[in-house]
Amino acid sequence: MRPRPPTMRGKRRYILARLDPPSVAFNGRDLYYAIAESLTSLYGDSGMAFIQPSVVSCAEGYAIIRCTRSSEGRVVAGLAAVHQVQEVSVAVRSIRTSGTMRSLRRHLAGMRSRAPCGEHDAYFQGRSWTAVQYPGAKVDLFEKGFKNQQPLFLTEEDLEE
């Protein structure tokens, strides 16, 4: 079967989104289900059919979401309304919208890394925690001995006090 010529294809828009917190390993499929649920609850099945969202890339704390042209505003609202993925609290923050994935990847290449830059033990509020440091003097605290718990989000100044 011959591919449809470019002029006959539907126009798309691509949205670059930042996924928080960086400590959560996001799966593209789970992220898609969360976005689809959010968009369906906001705009219904007909809106979802018009938007045609898909997660085309999901790695290193960023995702690229594809949608039909003129529906990008709805997708940004839908992304802002996502607050859980697989029952883990998250934030999906749209950063930029573009007509090509290439320009988003170029933009992404210029952004700073979000990888943790260290880990150490910390004592906060009378309890022991594992402190994961991130660029910008950010520290996420995970209480020792508890699985699947929500971290505390602090800065290095908070730990020094």
Partner: peptide
């Protein structure tokens, strides 16, 4: 009241 410090 929440899980993030005011500075963060």
């Amino acid at each position: 009241l929440g899980d993030s410090s005011v500075r963060r």
